[in-house]
Amino acid sequence: MRDYIAKLPLVQCFTVQGRRTPGFYAITLALGLALVLQCLKLIHPATQQSFLKQFHCQTRSFAVWSLRQTVPSMYSFENQVWWSRAPLDGRPTFTQSDLDAGRYHVWLNHFPLHFVTYNFYRDLFFMESDESYLHLESSFQHQNLSSSYKLERDHDVVRIIPMRGAGDE
């Protein structure tokens, strides 16, 4: 067992004599903080909520959101997206997509708002009516987060406008 432990880089790098640069300590500290946050996510409701808000771009400031982006949390949580040409009031009940009827439902593995941006159907939001609506839900353990957005066409651009829930951290 002692031989095994002695072979671990975790042990070696702090026992082998030699120079440890400030850069080494800075990277170790940053990764250590990220690891602590991830472990807190498992047990601490406020941390869970903050990660959910990160996924919905609801963090109180872009600066805080930017820092949190460095904490790896990909492919996490239960994330569902509902899109409709008709206004959505609360959690929609439809689970089948029907583009002809102007509605779509999908599960995504992370950052559900990317339904609007990171895809090959952006043209969907530029067709027919000038407005469409989006409802996002993410859940993790006992924490849930819902948010609603309006997609509004303004000349040649579609604007994502938070409606309910966004920015209330």
Binding site: S73, M74, Y75, S76, E78
Partner: peptide
């Protein structure tokens, strides 16, 4: 990060 996020 990925592991913890799936404990749901």
């Amino acid at each position: 990060g990925g592991f913890v996020g799936k404990i749901t």
